[in-house]
Design a protein around this nucleic acid. Structure first.
Lengths: 374, 374
DNA sequence: GCCGCATCGGTAAGCGCTTACCAGCCACAC
DNA sequence: GTGTGGCTGGTAAGCGCTTACCGATGCGGC
């Protein structure tokens, strides 16, 4: 029967093959593998041996169809589809954040035997809804990185499948996970104003309408008001969460002759990288003349010159929490009351003081001690 | 009928619902949706309207089972599962490379209507084989980032499902995709030796046994021999592809009093970052006293001080090519001759000269002009 | 006006698995 | 020795979809 044992691809063995080899019915095989019922020791052993011998692993689709559980969570990331034929217009820099979140999800997912089904949706995809719905039918639950759906679409979707948003807004049928923007930004603002005495501060925002950027800006504005500092803001202070955007904004400010504030607070680390770059080009010293801060504390933040002061969110934990949340919503059947739905989960943040705000350099310890406490 | 339109999750509509609403049979619905046969205009329209009305999207598992095509490609990445309960021991730095490759895959995958099923396998997972096989049964094909399987396992796997490895070795039943390590390293080596006249060079290797690291080291050694340069190598020169490893190695060299070579060639950019860090700690100027180079040209390479000279591989294209390769192997049936199998695809690399090797700083243009030709 | 052919659409089988249900079997007790 | 209860394991019914197969239907030609 196994005549085709050549280099040709053989069909993977099915449960029928196992049953035949073990001399039992397919039901028994299934029961042994899923720990249902009380198979006799004898039966169990024969099945396991056959499984071993054939290298049998059940087909995912068949199992999913029958068990009504795919053990897959879909993840939607909104990204520029820069790849064109054989060249990338630019190897995009805004990489780390969503990917690190995904990693956090992966780790937890694996513990539950789930996998992540990743789909990236083009920034200007006209029919994003269809793509997301299609992904939903391949998964047991969905995690959305960015706002890709209209509120109506989101509502319709979340009625069919558990949905968790990241840095979005909870709805009656979806949960949301984000980090504590407000707390982090307040701590940072107080540090700049109270500890360093900076009284003019510019806020380089992120994408227009980004909830994260808005929340951070709001907290900063309040602290500035409370601390008697002046906040520079407005159209000229719009970044894009990307290094290029940050650099561009600062470049414009310098060239146009508008004065720079004593401190520049960026909506994220990526744009802070761009700001540092632009300032360096013009010979403006950081933090001597202008202090710069980021948000996220991505790994490279500590390798920049000067080392970047930032607000750390445990990025992977963000992903881990998002996954745990969808997971808790999965498989509860249609009349699950959705205890996790409508919830808004905020993860703690922590201010990381480094050189770029005016604090002394971080550590004397060599980098080799990365793993050491701190 | 839709009495349960409350906040309760409703079961997604099935093809039966659509058929009922449209007043046709499920076969017609399927035919309309899949463009089989010649449905009458009338029929077609009624079906489409019903689909629209119900928001029907076919279930992935059912479709996969029936059509014998899941439209999913599994991706295996080997990573430390650092996440522990509520803290990450360290937000790992070796992030960018595999994730950027995955992005390249995503983009192309989406064009073919495929999604990526990501599973990360712990570095010291004892039974990685089982995990990978399980993933295989959820996918139509597999892309392996790292060596996780024994040759026998790989062979068994590739007999059941198309497999492409990245930076591995092709086998009669698998294809491999990698970048042209040899060409890139030769160009770099010649530049250092011929253009800059460096005659002592240290090669900071990557993981033990990494094919990439070995190929790069070999090419460097040959060029050094040809150019009359002395290559520092050996146990002390082993990194780990990570910043910490690179820093540690250099730290040891300095502390132990062994002299440093005139140029340090790192197996990748991450370890070069560590090397720069360690040298900076000891006040050794780069490239004045010691030149440093990386490999990969990850995005941050240009933001380091000094900007890092590196060998660019189009990382996303690596992923894109890997995907196209598995894709071409999928669905050809068991007697497909496997035209892509056993192939070894090498993508071109390009030397990027920046400050750290001794060349003048890259550009006067502000970063904002990222997209400009280089 | 009737028959033959081409076309459309419905019926049903089957993808590989899980599991409800029930028949058969064994061991024990009377 | 026979009756009964408790397990075990087999049979079969789906899960939601695709598609081979064939009957029904409509048109043109004679």
């Amino acid at each position: 029967m196994n005549a085709e044992a050549g280099t040709t691809a053989a069909q993977p063995p099915t449960i029928y093959d196992v049953a035949r080899v073990a001399g039992v019915s397919i039901a028994s095989v299934s029961r042994v593998l899923n720990g249902q019922g009380n198979p006799r020791a004898d039966t169990k052993e024969r099945v396991l041996q056959a499984v071993e011998e054939l290298g049998f692993v059940p087909d995912g689709a068949a199992r999913a169809l029958s068990a009504r559980l795919k053990e897959v969570v879909g993840v939607v990331v909104r990204r520029p589809q820069a790849y064109s034929a054989s060249m990338f217009t630019d190897e995009d820099e805004n990489l780390q954040f969503p990917d690190m979140i995904n990693r956090g999800m992966e780790i937890v997912a694996q513990r539950h035997g789930f996998d992540l089904l990743i789909r990236s949706v083009d920034l200007d995809e006209p029919d994003a809804g269809r793509l997301v719905f299609a992904l939903a039918r391949k998964s047991d639950g969905l995690i959305l990185h960015d706002r890709v759906l209209s509120p109506e679409q989101l509502d319709a979707l979340s009625r069919q499948v558990p949905v968790v948003t990241l840095a979005g807004q909870p709805t009656p049928t979806t949960a949301n996970v984000q980090s504590d923007n407000e707390g982090g930004m307040r701590a940072l603002a107080r540090h700049l104003i109270a500890d360093h005495g900076y009284l003019t501060i510019g806020y380089l925002a992120g994408h227009e309408g980004s909830p994260d950027s808005l929340a951070r800006g709001r907290a900063l504005a309040e602290e500035a008001a409370a601390g008697g500092a002046i906040l520079f803001t407005g159209e000229a202070w719009r970044g894009s969460y990307q290094a290029a955007g940050g650099a561009q904004a600062i470049e414009h400010l310098i060239v146009s002759g508008s004065g720079l504030p004593r401190a520049i607070v960026c909506a994220n680390d990526q744009s802070a990288i761009g700001v540092l770059h632009a300032l360096a080009l013009h010979g403006i010293s950081v933090p001597g003349q202008v202090a710069v801060t980021g948000f996220d504390d991505i790994p490279v933040a500590r390798h920049l010159r000067p080392q970047l002061t930032s607000v750390r969110q445990s990025i992977q934990e963000l992903g881990a929490t998002a996954f745990e949340t969808v997971y808790s919503m999965i498989g509860r059947g249609p009349d699950f009351d959705g205890s996790a739905r409508g919830r808004d989960i905020a993860l703690p943040t922590r201010l990381i003081r480094r050189e770029s705000c005016g604090c002394p350099p971080e550590s004397i310890r060599p980098l080799a001690g990365t793993g050491s406490g701190g």
